[in-house]
Design a binder for these strands. Structure first.
Lengths: 149, 149
DNA sequence: CACCGCTATCCATCCCAGTTGACGCCCTGG
DNA sequence: CCAGGGCGTCAACTGGGATGGATAGCGGTG
């Protein structure tokens, strides 16, 4: 099973409302004032894509509603010029990005191939093969540091 | 005004259904077969977070429904171990697709351990060990077909 | 002060995202 | 050849995501 780790606690993670609020406060039209909800709704309508009512934008910013659909997230992200991922919880994304970074560390295609083929083997077989690798490392004069990640 | 450019790109964008389909096809449980919709729904329920009915997952994969809410996207992304951005940004999706098989493989701590230890070995040793893994796969009744790209 | 334009806030409503339950198909074993 | 369970598929229903319209505050103008 892939990742069934318990979803992170409902702590004081930045809520969708907070992020939207930050966007409104940060990106504003040529003069100082913030965008009005009506303006945003209008602009989105003009953009041709999916439209959002001004009232709903207000609800999202206020935190009254916090579970918009994919298309609406895309539209909002598009308007404010941020990637849609901005609205999602970053901890999960960060963890996965870290994993992806680890993958780039494994450049050797042979090692990749090996890992791919090893996936699915029983733990006992994996252990056995790992031990064999350890032995080969020893024979080839590589460090045997069994560091824990 | 920020970015009011049309949200849809000119070319045929990969639909949500296609991406989901790819995830189902690529990341599968220990024994070759794909996850069943029921299994995914069950796992999400067990994870404690927001739940998705098996039927709905089917609808999303089929393309019958294509506008899920934020929480459901999070849940799905969490299950398959990809960042939520996977469902939005196509370029990111392609980048992740390239690593997806390896990414899921590496998630098994034993496999990761093995891969890290294997890094640095001589090509000949790697080949030898890969062949041994192939043999063990055979003994454990795992598919020997190198899955197509 | 009355009036007007504008915007945030509220409320009642609608419609589609999401669920429930049932059906049909393909296995597997008896 | 027929149970029986598992899984994908379908149709109808429900709830909340999303909307439109009404109201209240607020500054500006004559």
């Amino acid at each position: 099973m892939p990742d069934t780790s318990p979803t992170d606690s409902p702590d004081t993670r930045r809520t969708l409302a907070a992020k939207l609020n930050h966007l409104f406060h940060t990106v504003h039209p040529r003069d100082g004032g913030e965008y009005s909800f009506e303006e945003v709704a209008e602009a989105l309508r003009a953009a041709g894509g999916p439209t959002i009512s001004a009232t709903y934008i207000w609800q999202l910013r206020k935190g009254i509603r916090d579970n918009p659909t994919k298309r609406h997230l895309e539209a909002l992200a598009g308007f404010f010029g941020v990637p849609p991922a901005y609205f999602f919880d970053d901890t999960a994304a960060e963890r996965i990005d870290a994993e992806l970074a680890l993958l780039t560390a494994i450049r050797d295609t042979h090692v990749r191939q090996l890992a791919l083929r090893a996936a699915g083997l029983s733990p006992r077989s994996l252990n056995a093969i790992t031990e064999m690798i350890e032995r080969v490392r020893e024979l080839e004069g590589l460090p045997d540091t069994t560091e824990k990640s």
